[in-house]
Amino acid sequence: MDNKTLNRILKMKNMIFDNLMESYLPFPIDKKYYSSWTDKLPRDGDTVIYTSYMYQISGILKKYEKLFPKISNVNVPKRLMGLSKFLIKPGESEIKRSFSIMNNIVNILQKNHINFGYLYDDEPYSGAILLESGFLKEFMEYGNKLNDFFKSRGIKRIITLDPHTTNALKRLKTMINFDIDVKNYIELINFNGSGEYVIHDSCLYSRAMDMYGLIRDKINKSGIKIDEDYLTTSKDMGTCCGGPLSLISVNDSDEIARLRSEKLLKINNNVLVMCPLCYQNLSPHVENIKDLAEVIS
């Protein structure tokens, strides 16, 4: 790894960490806008649905990743980062899609008789990016702040929507005194669906959190048909979409996504994902790609 890349990563670490400690966000985003996908849920509650803004901002993460080297080169003062050109907005259709995914998850959870509130624009980001980049000290420090925040709001149970947030909170339990119950929405629901797909598993769901079997069982029962191939979709051999690599190299990340897509498309033209970042990474190479929460009810 050349020094330039390492310096960039270290600068990025400091920038993200400072932002998180100051504002609970890794970089400036319009919280009001991103939490406007619902107004029907009670504010707060001892159980809350927790987006960590992942579905909402997944479409702009790549743009931020491309921007990071520039920001770290010119040392943009933090107060300016909230302004104009640094505040990237996703496209209209992208944001509509993410809002409808989250609303569908809410509907299915409610159909499964699960009640919960939402923190709206008070919602903090999980810190997953720190954990996944190996910034463990910062992750734990921010984790403590997050823990205090959730506790101060009387939260006892968190329902997560995406693998990165779920994994970050579950790992916090093993690293600090984080004793809030964390459940991913897929664990909590039974659902119906149709169609035939090849699954691109989230690495975190299927292997890090050992949910491969649970997800297969639920999807099989739903009426969705899954096409499998040991070398491409098994727990042992299925591989990453390349997403996490984009902080190091956007080009390599894209190339890995392309190669992964090629393998998936040999099995079925319809690809099913369960993570907003997998969706972003694979969708340039796969025409018919859907998130699980878009095809179930």
Partner: peptide, 10 residues
């Protein structure tokens, strides 16, 4: 080189 790991987990 660890920074190239994506934590795919296989």
């Amino acid at each position: 080189k660890s920074l190239l790991c994506m934590h795919s987990g296989g």
